[in-house]
Amino acid sequence: MTKRIIFGGVAILLVIAAAYAAFFIAPEERTMGLIQRIFYFHAATAWAGEMTFFVCFVANLLYVWKRQPKYDWLSVSSAEVGLACITVVLITGPIWAHPVWGIWWTWDARLTSTFVLWLLYVSYLLLRTLVEEPDRRAMLSALFGIFAFLDVPLVFFSIRWWRTQHPQPVIMGGSGSGSGLDPTMSKVFFFSVLAMHMLAAFLIVERYILEKMKSELDFLAREVETQ
């Protein structure tokens, strides 16, 4: 119990510190100005969300392999947390885009593929609500989760290669190539990434405990019934 409180406290402190760093430590971006400070939150959350979906994928594979309910709990927890992250990304994105591009939404590769990713995991959670029997639900959703995760790179590259009308400057290229990013900026950014990962991990743990209690309750209720 206390461990959870400490974990949560650390996560929240890190997130607040990251916000502070984004506002007061990172230098002002030349062309975009103040609005660019959303980036530290927006992109870090996106990274955390993608990481979380990867955790979900690994948990899905482990479930299929080991068939232990704990992997199912982990996969539903991480899918929900990942979905929350991607939702934040999809909300903060347009808020950033509007002053910069003058429009809320554009069917650009990054935005579109993030949106498809969001849809895939929404349908993953939807599937879970529609299968009654716990073992079947765990197995079917694990398999769909695997298919969905395999689809993510395909979605991304298909849209990137065939659907982008105006290629635009990449703010953060692939991981590691922090080209053109001021050293302080990249420090602040990676600190934000760490903070968001901590937050995501904390939320996953909480959600996992919830799921575990749910199955305990289900079990106990049956016991009471049979008495």
Binding site: A19, L34, I35, I91, W96
Partner: peptide, 28 residues
């Protein structure tokens, strides 16, 4: 310029996480 947008982005973002956490805590 755009302070309101930046502010809105952070508030909404944190809000989503906070509401998410609240529902979990309540259900727990």
């Amino acid at each position: 310029k755009n302070l309101d947008s930046v502010f809105a982005a952070y508030v909404v973002g944190w809000g989503v996480f906070f509401v998410f956490y609240l529902t979990i805590a309540k259900r727990i």
